[in-house]
């Protein structure tokens, strides 16, 4: 997934995000937004801005508390296992939050990371 710097692109992403997170049981506070099918794709760009980005800086492009993910030499299996089970004191376990298909989306996002052109 490429980085979208313009506000219109960001808005478009946000709209798709509502779809993506519907399966994560959004609170009633946002119930005015349309419901979405449970098999909707995960918007990983928004996921990084929501949860992952504090440690994986700049959307995963730079090292922070967590390692740089762009151009990582780790295998898909390694990344999948780390997302599911975490690492004590370093990364939370997300095995109960994301299903295998969603984790595949996260891996695809990581593999597609390019330097920020913005």
């Amino acid at each position: 997934m490429t980085r979208h710097a313009s506000s219109s692109a960001a808005l478009a992403l946000a709209a798709s995000t509502i779809v993506a997170f519907a399966q994560l049981s959004i609170k009633p506070a946002l119930a005015q937004q349309a419901a979405a099918p449970a098999d909707a794709p995960l918007d990983v760009h928004e996921l990084f801005a929501t949860t992952c980005g504090w440690c994986h800086s700049d959307g995963g492009r730079a090292a922070g508390k967590g390692p740089q993910l762009m151009d990582t030499a780790r295998s898909d299996d390694f990344i999948r296992n780390r997302i599911k089970n975490g690492k004590e004191g370093a990364m939370p376990a997300f095995g109960q939050v994301f299903n295998d298909s969603q984790i595949d989306s996260i891996i695809a996002y990581i593999r597609g990371l390019k330097p920020d052109q913005g």
């Binding site: 992403l13 997170f21 609170k27 980005g53 939050v97």
Partner: peptide, 26 residues
Amino acid sequence: MTLTVSKTTPITAPQVQLNIGADFKI
């Protein structure tokens, strides 16, 4: 820090997750 603000949606199930609303870098 550099900062790119992004719209996000609170995740509250099956467990609450962080809600940052941005990507950033020191």
